[in-house]
Design a protein around this nucleic acid. Structure first.
Length: 311
DNA sequence: AATGCCATCAACCGCCCACAC
DNA sequence: CGTGTGGGCGGTTGATGGCAT
């Protein structure tokens, strides 16, 4: 017997989410917290599949999501994590807590795969001719390998930093064990770097309200797109913040304790790096061991050796 | 200006797994 | 132990915008 659909498909809306729908969803989650997605459409009046609501929340509205361009560091991490973990985007995303698996997957498919392919061609070409594609000076296989290793080292360092339990003044990470036994990273997220859902929606609404109602539908997708590349140039969402009273529940921070003053609605939901990870994976073990023996230079260790270390 | 092609990314689809009963 | 269900995950699609012709 086939599985019944997750919800009644008749009359359900599909396609891009409107700001109104976002508001409904965020308001509901603000009040009830995420989870029990099946109840969300009926309780909010959203004509959306429960799955669609969850996806919208986890990939777009959830607080702590960083949007916009990937940094070189993130890019390196993704490349190496993909090499290590394969297309396990959720696992990869768990090492980049502020990125969603969907984001990473898209970035991989649209940017990195091509980039690596080009790079691979360059390597092939180079190995054939001893000349790089871009006309730059040829480098030896050894140099290429060292470059890769350096790159990996940087990625590992970045990864270690991300996972670091270091209590340095600049690092406000705080690993806490929640009631469900998971460790959650309640690292404070500067709003300038991370777009909260309020900010996301504020930007959505700003663009939406600037347009006449008849343009609202069209502007939805536009603003939706824009938020993806304009995360740092948010407008003036004060009015909306007061409307939601939501930002405070997410980013209100007790400066002295560095802890969330109110995290209940999102407890266990924030996709903290340690939240969804298996306890000390090989990769993490690798990183921590690496940290312990940091003075051991990777140069001179072949990629094969590294692979053996990992596997 | 019109058209076609390509890149991007939000959203959907289908499968799988864990868990409750 | 078997079954049903909710939620997670990875692959894919489709709408949109930008650019070239």
């Amino acid at each position: 017997m086939g599985r019944p659909p997750c919800c009644d498909k008749i009359g359900l809306k599909k396609g891009p989410w409107t700001p109104e729908e976002d508001i409904l969803l965020v308001s509901y989650i603000q009040e009830h917290g995420p989870g029990n997605w099946r109840a969300v459409p009926s309780n909010t009046g959203l004509l959306r599949c429960s799955k669609s609501c969850r996806l919208r929340w986890t990939n777009y509205l959830r607080p702590g999501i960083k949007r916009g361009n990937f940094t070189d560091q993130e890019e390196s991490m993704i490349i190496h994590l993909q090499a290590l973990l394969g297309n396990r985007w959720a696992a990869i995303a768990s090492y980049l807590p502020e990125r969603t698996d969907n984001d990473i997957k898209n970035y991989w498919n649209t940017h990195l795969r091509k980039k690596l392919k080009k790079l691979q061609n360059g390597v092939d070409d180079q190995s054939r001719n001893g000349v790089s594609l871009d006309g730059s000076q040829p480098i030896s296989r050894g140099q290429w390998e060292r470059r890769l290793q350096t790159d990996m080292h940087m990625a590992k360092q970045a990864l270690f930093d991300a996972l670091s339990l270091d209590k340095s003044p600049n690092n406000s990470s705080e690993i806490t064990e929640s009631s469900n036994g998971y460790y959650s990273n309640t690292r404070l997220i500067p709003s300038a770097t991370y777009a909260s859902s309020t900010e996301n929606i504020s930007r959505l609404l700003q663009g939406w309200m600037e347009n006449s109602p008849k343009n609202a539908q069209k502007s939805t997708s536009e603003t939706t797109q824009r938020t993806g590349t304009d995360s740092t140039s948010s407008g003036s969402p004060e009015a909306l913040e007061s409307f939601f009273g939501f930002e405070s529940s997410i980013s209100d921070v007790d400066e002295t304790t560095n802890s969330m003053t109110e995290t209940k609605p999102f407890e266990g939901e924030r996709k903290a790096s340690l939240n969804t990870q298996v306890p000390l994976s090989l990769l993490e073990k690798w990183l921590f061991e690496e940290a312990v023996s940091q003075d051991q230079d990777m140069v001179g260790v072949s990629l094969d050796d590294m692979a053996h270390q990992l596997l």
